[in-house]
């Protein structure tokens, strides 16, 4: 699904990501763990195209996307979320979802000028689709509220739903549980498992090891910009140097 080879990302003379190669298998949840400053978030940003690659290649679905800008990658189905809340605050919850849809005849200057009749059909379908997602994530009642007024956990859900509106093939989640109330952490975990069963591929950065253990099929451990190990969580626990580097300390 995704093959990243020898990714480097230099920044002000620092090697934030220093020769990382990973492969993400389709239909699985791959976890990316490591201590603070290991370069996990930077790596995610490089994969999503938010930050440019210094060197290395990224192949998505057999297509070299290394030089594609972030928005083009998103259109191909490689969609990321952010570590910090990044909702469109003064759009309603429903609008946050609608805006992410890819195919809407009214989503261009030309379409807009043609008037409502030109795009209302597309819009209706998307509203239905978005409401179905809201229902599934238990947020139907909030659809007309401004996203900026939601709680931290609800913002996470909005972001995940927004990403799903693009019908992604690979979802990149950057610490989806951070700053979220424990009750919603449970919910998010459940939703992610559900999505995986539907065949969605996920690559996620996560700190909470229990969560990683429960959710992820494969885990990649990063430290100081490098991959220091990968495999299932239980196999990693047996490797002394990884335990020393991260799992214990």
């Amino acid at each position: 699904m995704l093959v990243a080879t020898d990714i480097h990302r230099h920044f002000e003379g620092m090697h934030a990501v220093d020769g990382v190669s990973i492969e993400v298998a389709p239909g699985k949840i791959t976890g990316l763990i490591g201590p603070n400053g290991a370069g996990k978030s930077t790596f995610m940003a490089v994969i999503a195209g938010t930050l440019p690659t210094s060197s290395g290649t990224i192949v998505f679905d057999g297509k070299d996307i290394t030089r594609l800008p972030a928005y083009r990658r998103a259109r191909l189905g490689l969609v990321r979320t952010f570590q910090l809340p990044s909702e469109f605050a003064r759009l309603t919850v429903l609008e946050n979802l609608l805006v992410a849809a890819q195919h809407n005849r009214g989503d261009s200057l030309f379409g807009a000028l043609m008037g409502k009749r030109y795009w209302i059909e597309d819009e209706r379908k998307l509203v239905q689709q978005a409401r179905a997602l809201l229902k599934r994530f238990g947020m139907s009642a909030k659809e007309s509220d401004y996203a900026g007024t939601m709680s931290g956990g609800q913002k996470r859900l909005i972001e995940i739903m927004r990403a799903l509106m693009l019908q992604p093939r690979l979802l990149l989640l950057d610490e989806p549980m951070s700053g979220v109330h424990p009750k919603i952490v449970q919910e998010i975990q459940y939703y992610l498992q559900d999505l995986r069963h539907e065949g969605l591929t996920i690559l996620m950065v996560e700190h909470e090891l229990h969560m990683v253990e429960r959710l992820c099929d494969t885990v990649v451990v990063m430290a100081q910009g490098k991959v220091i190990g990968s495999g299932t969580m239980s196999s990693l626990r047996k490797q002394q140097e990884i335990v020393d580097a991260y799992l214990v300390g």
């Binding site: 999503a48 259109r75 969609v79 952010f82």
Partner: peptide, 10 residues
């Protein structure tokens, strides 16, 4: 509202 997030949704 959020330019980087807009980029991330294509």
């Amino acid at each position: 509202e959020h330019e980087v997030a807009a980029t991330a949704i294509g």
